[in-house]
Design a protein around this nucleic acid. Sequence first.
DNA 1: GTGAAAGCGCTAACAA
DNA 2: TTGTTAGCGCTTTCAC
Lengths: 306, 306
Amino acid sequence: MARKLNYVPNEMARSLRLQQSGVIGLVTRGLGYNWVEDILVGLLPVFDQAGYTPLISVNYWDGKRERRELDSLLQRRVEGIICLPMPYNRATYQDIMRRGIPLLFLADVLEDLTDVSYVLWDTRAATRVAVRHLIETGRRRIGFIGADHRTYWTRARYQAYEEVMREAGLQIHPEWIAWELFDFSLQARRKVESMVDRVFADPSHRPEALYVSTDALATLILDILTRRGIPVPGEVAIVGLGDLFMSDHSGISLTTVREPTQELGRLAAQTMLELIRQPGRGPIQHKIESNELIVRRSTQGRAGDL
Amino acid sequence: MARKLNYVPNEMARSLRLQQSGVIGLVTRGLGYNWVEDILVGLLPVFDQAGYTPLISVNYWDGKRERRELDSLLQRRVEGIICLPMPYNRATYQDIMRRGIPLLFLADVLEDLTDVSYVLWDTRAATRVAVRHLIETGRRRIGFIGADHRTYWTRARYQAYEEVMREAGLQIHPEWIAWELFDFSLQARRKVESMVDRVFADPSHRPEALYVSTDALATLILDILTRRGIPVPGEVAIVGLGDLFMSDHSGISLTTVREPTQELGRLAAQTMLELIRQPGRGPIQHKIESNELIVRRSTQGRAGDL
DNA sequence: GTGAAAGCGCTAACAA
DNA sequence: TTGTTAGCGCTTTCAC
């Protein structure tokens, strides 16, 4: 009879009555570079299984926009929020937690919010592997280019770089450090160009290798250097972080440390389900250690061969 | 007082009472290659302005999954659905329309569903520009590699290729045509490898140029050919379609015709709003003509120079 | 102006 | 087993 009348249950009414929406907010900065895609590959099967639907919200690195989106998620009575934390919205995150809504930071955390659940990849250890690889292949004059999002783990990458350099007895040249606040929105390219140009300003005093804090940025830098006539790895070796989907293309061929992105997605989903099922329990914090170095053309040869 | 009590309106109750959810489903095949990202750049501002929220659903080229997602959208009482049509779910699309829910096909259509609204890019005209560019740069032995999704516009690309070849009096060699049903899921690479290997099987009878029906595929083919020791553009020139975000990278540098993706997103959003505001009105069908050829390294030189 | 009440479509509890 | 009813939180209407 229901079929005959083309009946389709009304999920709004159902949710209202049940007092649960079955929706979990997934707050992202953008859908570029296949990162969210890979997260979803791990996350969706878990949510499907448990009957939850992710509501993907995009904020384009805009704090105000994120705030609006978070408000909207609260009004929709999402049962949990998975989000890449931005430093501007501390207060909102605290508000969400005070309301008892499970909040899970993905991929990064904020230093002063220590009681928030998180699922992330230990990029400090990965950075150590990456920088050590440069040193082991004979590079000494190693620069750093990275984004500082004012979050714990973007800073940890810089610190890990410093640490390894110190341990190896190598000097850190401030001229070769470009560590700035920026996002991957429209003006990103020009910003990165100015960072690269600063690092390579003095032809007689250039780094012979760069550690770049993410493959997205490293791929862009590779392009900029090529256009500037500075061959990679001929004059500069580059190592990135993440193994994004284009890094293994033969025209890019970037040495990197693989990020276990799908695993992060799966673990994030499972952790969120736990948080929902056990309200009032303390924060769950997962740090995945994974240091799979993938050597490609961008660090080929040894410094002496040049 | 509301603020004092930390009141947050309940959107489920509101939607139930208003009998409108303020949600529009956006059914995608995946979030890879920044295509959906670019669509959203055009679409979000329009929806924001009008107070609508997109609910992004991902089906990974799986017809069953799409059907489930569509059902779920119906239960959520979305006010409209924007979707990249898949041939398997004709019946569901018709069902959606019979229910009076605005349905908008994005980027492609199905041949027999002529009364559905759509917003798309005329890839027939774009293909003509691309193939003509190969001919104008002296190429005669031109092959075709493309995906056949059993949709109108993936077929139109093949037809446009044939058309231009015929007009130029060039012979079409079936050995150089690899036009198959496949998706961009996990096994895509191996499938494409076998397509490439078939086209290049006979070393004494190879194409000197390829038209590839999308940049995503062309980029992959570029990688495969390079690894097979077949230099591009040295032995084969390649032209793609779309100008995806990596096509201009100096390591890829793919000649292509730009797809007006953001414009598609904006127009799709506007069209959906019209459909919602004027229920019962006929289908709205927009075909964007845009043929901006971007010449890059992959078609550099002329055939005679080799 | 302010207040009360009906009802959106569902589920769960209870009654028959 | 089957039928009835209250109520989730909101908006709109109608009465005062």
